[in-house]
Design a protein around this nucleic acid. Structure first.
Lengths: 343, 343
DNA sequence: TTCGTCCTTGACACCGGTATCATTAGGAAA
DNA sequence: TTTCCTAATGATACCGGTGTCAAGGACGAA
């Protein structure tokens, strides 16, 4: 039932240490020996015991995924992507949701790291933006990879994966401008999140490039939630839409869905009287009426890449590709909420 | 930086084994000794190393969550519930999504269990319904807790938590009947899932109790997806709704949202011309227009309970509460999709 | 052939806890 | 106080691997 490295060693007629070498792809093993051991491994269906490896080895066989994100779809995407690479590499994944607002967060995190002997961490926004957390991790010499909203502007590129929200927002805004919209409102997500700033900046830049003034009155500062989208739209469009708004950009799909809901409440036709756009291309952006124009973000690819990058770091410098730090730019997906033609 | 059990033992002036006893709440420790050790633990901020415990002990300090469910909200709810209890008990959670259709599933699962020395598993539907998987787990003497759709009708109550979909479907159907609906259609979820059968049975029982024939033509057998809801509603309501359907029950919220979408396509007013209901009370059931009448299922409570039950099993019989096996009945939530008053 | 070097391999301690069993201490009964 | 029994504690092996370092072997050069 339980096969240990010793059994394999006996069957192959070599020492335990040699089996260990083969399992871990260490150099300095004769091909003949390697094959011999592998045959024994296969025959016995040997599976190394993770606990023992973790205990004995310098580095462990588990990585952590840290997130503070209420968006279930996002979290699941991240988990699945990271997990699929973990399986390939024989690692375990320890998930660690933790509240950003909570002051005990860092202590909890440190506790987790110490208890489970984590080899590295994948940090997702907005936690990945917390400089004090990063500093702590640096201090304890922990490997990590950050998924960040940005344009590659960070100084520590080796550990960052960027999502270019700026470019995506620029593209969405341009799309609306090309449809003839002039008064485009924007419902922001959480203040303090980098993505909020980046998306807003992209929107403003696009307006500027088209010589349109970005009026403060067209901005609603909310958070990344459906409710916020409802509130924002109500506020922006109140009193019979005195501002003459013809398009509303939501900070993400949930906000956009909320705006859609509010428009419905106010008997405003979408997209006839008002265009609405989202961000992220969550599954439910295809389930609203009409479907949401949004920017597609390939979370699976992003998370897999994050895991790959992390593994290359934990394994040491030998195969640290130079170009492994990538910038992902979400791509515009036009649907019925901005363009009746594509409904 | 790194505090071992040895450090604690020295500081407290006792043996390592005694510290171990205190940490694990074993009997036969004098109160004075206990306090002495705990003081040392606190002072050094000692955290037991999970890998070492797993390796040395007979049972491990990790449990697994196994799921094959495309519903992100459901999975996240389960994870968070189980995780919160894990933290209280000092356990790790290893998540293990696995495809039910895949024949390699069981092998993968066994591999995982052997590698990580899992102490127990929480099984969610539909995987929890796979008898061959259960048999395998029994054979390898693995602890597990199943979350199942049902009414407590299983023979092995000690490891089951039931969600009474039958009662919930009965309640929803009754609600529609009381509103005066006679021709109530039902869009089923995946065939073979217990929940599909239970929900359908509840619907049929309610009709029977009201002396209404359950016509086969009012049934659409789909799967638990938005698309299926769209297709189902289109099919049921085709040709100007010759069947005279005035209400559609969706097998879950996604199906209901799809039906809502289809109704919109066909210019059918909700709830005026057609009532629609869902199941589960996912977050997006509050984000459709109109909001969905549905059955609220307390996933957080369910998953926490599952973890609690699992821990009581892995710890042995001493604190296995008798009444710990529970049946959760989702409760009716009336919203605008069935009743205009509550919009 | 002999020597030296580098490549392979093995022996053994050790990671940080727990299980087992022997030992000691404490308290009740005699 | 002594005796005896039980509860509390300690010593030590062990879980299943990896790190370290020393020994053995292959191979080219002299």
């Amino acid at each position: 039932m339980k096969v240990t490295i010793n059994d394999v060693a006996k069957l192959a007629g070599v020492s335990m240490k040699t089996v260990s070498r083969v399992i871990n792809n260490e150099p300095s093993v004769r091909k003949k020996t390697h094959d011999l051991v592998m045959a024994a491994v296969k025959e016995l269906n040997y599976q190394p015991n993770l606990a023992a490896r973790n205990l004995a080895g310098t580095s462990s066989y588990a990585i952590g995924l840290v997130y503070d994100n209420p968006n279930a779809y996002y979290v699941i995407d991240m988990q699945n992507g990271v997990l699929s690479r973990c399986r390939q590499e024989g690692y375990e994944l320890v998930i660690h949701p933790c509240s950003y607002a909570d002051d005990n967060m860092k202590n909890e995190l440190k506790t987790m790291i110490r208890r489970s002997r984590i080899a590295g961490l994948v940090l997702t926004p907005p936690l990945s933006e917390q400089q004090d957390l990063i500093d702590e991790l640096d201090e304890m010499n922990m490997h990590y990879v950050r998924i960040l909203s940005g344009r590659g502007d960070n100084n520590d590129n080796s550990s960052c994966i960027y999502v270019n929200d700026f470019a995506a927002a620029y593209e969405i805004t341009t799309h609306l401008l090309q449809l003839g919209h002039k008064n485009i409102a924007f419902i922001c997500g959480d203040q303090g999140h980098k993505s909020t700033a980046e998306r807003l900046a992209g929107y403003q830049q696009a307006l500027a490039d088209h010589h349109i003034e970005a009026r403060e009155g067209l901005l609603y500062r909310g958070e990344y939630s459906f409710e916020s989208g409802v509130e924002g739209a109500k506020e922006l469009l109140k009193d019979g839409n005195t501002l003459g708004i013809t398009a509303v950009m939501g900070g993400n799909d949930e906000i956009a869905a909320g705006a859609l809901f509010a428009a419905r409440l106010m008997n405003i036709a979408i997209p006839g009287e008002l265009a609405i756009t989202g961000f992220e291309d969550s599954p439910f952006s295809k389930q609203t009426w009409p479907k949401l124009t949004t920017a597609h973000q390939d979370n699976d690819e992003i998370s897999q890449h994050a895991a790959r990058l992390l593994f290359s770091k934990t394994r040491g410098a030998r195969n640290q590709d130079k170009d492994i730090c990538r910038i992902f730019t979400p791509s515009l997906v036009i649907r019925g909420s901005s363009d009746a033609e594509t409904a």
